[in-house]
């Protein structure tokens, strides 16, 4: 099979680039140092297209398309930033901040949080829409980790890494709409989970301070999701 037909030429923000046909717009853009904000996406995990921050304009498409799940195509004309897209992204980010209780200043992830970083990157200095202040629990029953639903953005990275990489399927999502909650097993305390292997991958991939190690408090929390792509390759390589 020749590599030739697998190359697509497209433009991103007017710049002509080439990409492999199996690449998403996001992958192609990042390869060419074009920044597209994401939250649910994480290299090494399946895509869910849920955070809506990577929406881009594709000429000819009726709607904005999520860059993470849209494959490149020949002649595609992609715009990753425009006043309209930026405005939408900012508002989406505001919705994230308003729906739960993200108190950055006292969060374990302060300074190491993808949501916080996004607010900086997108220039979101304040939230125009009213905060909801839901009452949400903290589950500290696990000996090593804590889940604080106040800080969860429902990106489902924990659910995916637990299912796709660790294979434990401990994490899931319950409820729906604004009542959605990530859970372990039958919503038991995490410490009582029968399936959790305590591998801690969920903590490492969590973009915010929702999942954290009990010892990483103060200003010390650092997440390390870099291991994922390697693990994925290892796993896939092992398969017959």
């Amino acid at each position: 099979m020749s590599a030739e037909p697998n190359v697509r030429t497209l433009t991103i923000n007017g710049e002509e680039i080439s990409a492999r046909s199996d690449q998403s717009i996001l992958e192609a853009a990042r390869e060419h140092n074009v920044e597209i904000p994401t939250l649910c996406h994480l290299e090494g995990l399946s895509e869910v297209g849920a955070c809506r921050l990577c929406l881009v304009e594709v000429k000819g498409a009726r709607r904005l398309l999520p860059a993470c799940v849209t494959q490149v195509a020949e002649g595609m004309e992609v715009t990753t930033h425009s006043p309209k897209i930026d405005r939408y992204r900012t508002m989406i980010l505001e919705m994230y901040f308003a729906e739960r209780n993200h108190v950055c200043s006292v969060c374990v992830a302060n300074g190491n949080c993808e949501l916080q970083d996004l607010s900086l990157k997108l220039g979101m200095t304040h939230v125009e829409i009213p905060y909801q202040y839901p009452q949400l629990p903290v589950d500290a029953s696990h000996p090593r980790f804590t889940v604080d639903h106040n800080r969860c953005v429902l990106c489902t990275r924990c659910v995916r890494v637990c299912s796709e990489i660790e294979g434990a399927n401990t994490w899931g999502v319950m409820g729906r709409g604004a009542q959605s909650l990530v859970i372990t097993d039958l919503k038991q305390p995490w410490g009582d989970s029968e399936t959790c292997t305590s591998c801690g991958k969920c903590v490492q991939v969590c973009p915010t301070g929702a999942l954290f190690e009990k010892t990483s408090v103060g200003n010390k929390t650092r997440k390390h999701p870099e291991f994922l792509p390697y693990l994925r390759i290892m796993r896939e390589g092992e398969q017959p």
């Binding site: 200043s105 006292v106 374990v108 903290v138 500290a140 804590t146 009990k214 103060g218």
Partner: peptide
């Protein structure tokens, strides 16, 4: 109330 104690210094 309800916060993990190890967050208390920061809060």
């Amino acid at each position: 109330e309800g916060r993990p104690f190890y967050e208390m210094p920061n809060i």
